[in-house]
Amino acid sequence: MSPRVVFPNRVLPYLLVAPQLAITLVFFYWPAGQALYQSMLKEDPFGLKSKFVWFDNFKKVLADPNYLYSLKVTVVFSVATAAVAMGVALLLAVMAEKVVRSKGFYRTLLIWPYAVAPAIAGMLFLFLFNPSIGSLAILLRKIGIAWDPVLNGTDAMTLLVAAAAWKQISYNFLFFVAGLQAIPKTLIEAAAIDGAKEMKRFWTITFPLLAPTTFFLLVINTTYAFFDTFGIVHAVTGGGPGKSTETLVYKVYNDGFVNLILGSSAAQSVILMVIVIALTAIQFRYVERKVHYG
């Protein structure tokens, strides 16, 4: 370890971290505490008075079949989104590495979609795949696929995954490209001389050495699919048809802001918070062990 620099001043270090601490406290711990407190309150229908009910809201939420269904939807949606977003991004990154001329141009083009706001991305896909006016929906129907995301839950989920993944591909692509560039070229050459063909080289050398990047993106993408996709769900399906695409985040919004069941909504967001913390902890504890850092 490199020798530590010691500053004799006792106050200055605290002053230096104070702004960051203040931001974290005000924008994270305060609302989180508020949510925790709210999750134990029960309000009357007119919002005139509320009563402290301990864990009643949690009991109710966890016993609600709608909530469990929403959990299932979220898992399907998150796994599919993360898998598609990372898989496609990796494929594109590997292909972009092979481009000899105007590499930078291709890369720039592939990074652009990240600049599109979630709601706009959602609208884009909504229009493209709208069963009655969508240009791509018409194409799908022409090749014999009965496409109707407005009525068919599976189609709606597919559309949602496509839209959510599409937006995240650029981000993942950027990291995969950087990860690929960090792999020394001589390693690939050594593997080639060692008789490994291209696919074999990828799976035995490139992919394992990309593991730190892949792991990082796995954490980021799961969190993204859980939390940041509200805009897309809201714009594309609004949780429908029925409740087939109502993810946990969307349900929090729906119950809290549309149906105004604040207690239940707060309880749900606390559960969501616990889920994501647990998920990240699991990823770091079990998946990271298999990751080799250079």
Partner: peptide, 13 residues
Amino acid sequence: IAMVFQNYALYPH
């Protein structure tokens, strides 16, 4: 053929 590289190019993982 077999090649020994300047930076050895051992597979780190």
